[in-house]
Amino acid sequence: MITLDQVSKIYHAGGRRIAAVDEVSLAIPAGRVTGIIGQSGAGKSTLIRMLNGLEKPSSGSVLVAGRDMGRASGAELRKARLKIGMIFQHFNLLWSRTARANVAFALEIAGIPRAERRARVEELLRLVGLEGREDAYPAQLSGGQKQRVGIARALANAPDLLLCDEATSALDPQTTDQILDLLSEINRRLGLTIVLITHEMHVVRRICDHVAVMEAGRVVEEGLVSEVFAAPKQPITRRFIRQTAEEGGFDPALAPPEGALLRLTHAAEGGEAQASAFSEAVLKLGLRANLLQARLIQTPEGPSGEIVAHLPDPSQARPLAGFLAARGIGVDILREA
């Protein structure tokens, strides 16, 4: 869907040369949710803005659905942008228009006739859960509702790609989760590709399939969320994982230094399935095992139970993993020694 090849963006400010994005190569899969996480100033916004041509790369190529966004301009670029929605941290709605008219704006730009616009706007506002608030002005809406208008507007022309620039960073935690779940649902229902940037690990954990970690303009680590976070290679990635540890996630750095670590997950059954399978395994296999953590978490597939276990004898890790996998429990061996 999206291929970045050796992409750099250099700014010159006050005689200094700033590589906001530094030789980034990345393939973003179609139909999935990809998160780009990094601290403030890492170059995330610059990178995502190159995906819809708001920013031109200084070098390298940005291919979106086969089109080189770095070279496209004028009418071609505007046409390509109709199929790329974008939502923003501060929503960026027109305050002079109602929710309905804000969504219609995207359709006006696409040249959709008035009658068709009306029906489409109703449908979009229903999709994002804003029935009854169609005639409110942005000033009369809460942050979460404003972002719903933003999402409806971004989806108006049935895009193949949705870009989210810190879309939940201005929202409270509860609203953040509602918006994230809406994005996740849209991804599943409409099958469109979502690229989001964030500085919050929670956002990646909750809805992303893939993740790329950015630091000082570079992508330092990337892959499936489950893999990258199970075995982080870069210090910056570990720092982000500690960020969720503070929110209740598991921090491998706190585990006993010796022995194997396993993470057991089982979607949709509220965690009881793996808890009972785990105790069964401990009895049947005669294991010595310590429960380090057990909790429920939200993932792209729904609620999921998560257990982290420590086996002082690492040789028992494989048999246990085999036993549990046979009962449909997801097993990540976080550490084998």
């Binding site: 505007r78 974008m86 923003f88 501060h90 027109l94 002079s96 022309n157």
Partner: peptide, 28 residues
């Protein structure tokens, strides 16, 4: 708000859209 102009460009709006549908109504 610059963000609104940016959003308009991201939606595929050109200069005419920015002037007549954003700047003038928003600054009315």
């Amino acid at each position: 708000d610059r963000g609104v102009i940016e959003a308009t460009r991201a939606m595929g709006g050109g200069i005419g859209t920015v002037v007549f549908r954003v700047l003038i109504p928003e600054a009315a």
